[in-house]
Design a binder for these strands. Structure first.
Length: 350
DNA sequence: CTCATTTGACCCGC
DNA sequence: GCGGGTCAAATGAG
């Protein structure tokens, strides 16, 4: 019981911390740069973090696992609307909680639930962003009543890092250009530390599946970088990767949330902590092998997944040298990172 | 060869 | 029995 509560608290801390840090970043950007869509996106992500935190709070409250009250009465979306942005037409993503009426199964109450709507356009496939940096694996698709072939995704690192986040994507009945994405559970994998919380616009994965491996490489490299830097200055480096993806969200998020550190020192000043749930992070960084053991203990029912899990574990250590992005224009060794390192390569908010 | 997706089968709650 | 959700063998892509 307490462990569950602690986990929820960590998730909450994670969300709130991210929201705070994004707010700091926004403040900085507003002071130093001209208005741009980046500001809107950053605002959106800030609000999303807080909304998710509220979602967790409400969910925990309903299950009695966390005795905290949501700061708003009624639906949070009434007070914190992502769509509140005057440019929401471009971002066009609403965020609403539905835990009150979606929990028809007691077992399925075990995970927090929220829904995100993503609008798809013919030009760029998705407005706003397409990917939150999370890596998903599709595990099912089924036509159900009132939905056209909803797809089911789970976190790629479910077995490696015991991350039980899932999402369901289905086309909106009202507007065929809108896809409703229902997220279930929060990421406990490393990705959550590097990715922006409002998770991937899932349709991207239906319309464009390629970024998955790219995300994995990015994640692997990020993990590697973080491990390497953690012992040095408790800082981490997330360089700007630009993938040939149809969408730019991963690229964008890498820029907008440079997981801190040297890059943040440049942009935000040396007093920018950007601590993303250290407890969560650390426990996850070294959870791969233990998860593997756990899996063995519980009995592996899918050898293919086990093998891929092992491959992921191995690749996480080898990606720095083998991955195409490992040979990028930035030095891997953080010590060698020049404070003036051009994180604005390919335009940092330009 | 590896890994992600597809898709029919299966499980489970109502 | 029905329907939503998940599993896992088959298949395909890179």
């Amino acid at each position: 019981m307490e462990s569950t509560s602690t986990w929820e608290q960590q998730m909450l801390i994670n969300e709130l911390t991210q929201g705070m840090e994004r707010a700091k970043q926004l403040r900085f950007y507003l002071c130093t740069t001209s208005p741009s869509e980046a500001h809107d996106l950053l605002l959106q992500r800030i609000l999303s973090s807080y909304e998710k935190a509220l979602s967790i709070l409400k969910w925990s409250g309903s299950t009695g696992q966390l005795q905290l009250a949501a700061p708003t009465s009624g639906a949070p979306e009434s007070s914190i609307s992502v769509d509140g942005s005057p440019r929401s037409e471009e971002l066009n993503k609403t965020f609403r909680e539905q835990q009150e009426h979606r929990d028809t199964s007691k077992k399925r109450k075990m995970l927090p639930l929220w829904t995100e709507q993503v609008r798809v356009t013919s030009e760029n496939g998705l407005e706003g962003h397409n990917d939150d940096g999370y890596s998903w694996r599709k595990y099912g698709q089924k036509d159900i009543l009132g939905a056209k072939y909803p797809s089911y995704y789970r976190c790629t690192y479910r077995h490696v890092q015991n991350c039980w986040a899932t999402k369901q994507v289905q086309r909106s009945d009202d507007d065929p250009t809108v896809f409703e994405i229902t997220y279930k559970g929060s990421h406990t994998c490393n990705q959550s530390n590097n990715a922006v919380q409002p998770p991937a616009s899932p349709e991207n994965q239906e319309l464009n599946h390629k970024p998955q491996q790219q995300n994995q490489m990015l994640f692997d490299l990020r993990a590697k970088l973080r491990v390497n830097t953690e012992g040095l200055d408790n800082k981490e480096i997330t360089p700007h990767f630009s993938f040939p993806s149809t969408f730019a969200s991963v690229d964008f998020e890498s820029r907008i949330f440079p997981i801190s550190t040297l890059a943040d020192d440049v942009h935000l000043g040396a007093n920018s902590p950007l601590v993303v749930s250290p407890a969560l992070s650390e426990s996850n960084y070294f959870s791969a092998s233990s998860t593997y053991e756990m899996k063995r203990f519980r009995g592996v029912h899918n050898l293919q997944h086990l093998e891929s899990d092992i491959a992921e574990i191995v690749s996480a250590h080898a990606s720095t040298t083998n991955s195409p992005i490992g040979g990028m224009e930035f030095p891997i060794d953080p010590v060698e990172l020049d404070p003036n390192f051009p994180f604005n390569v390919q335009g940092f908010f330009t």
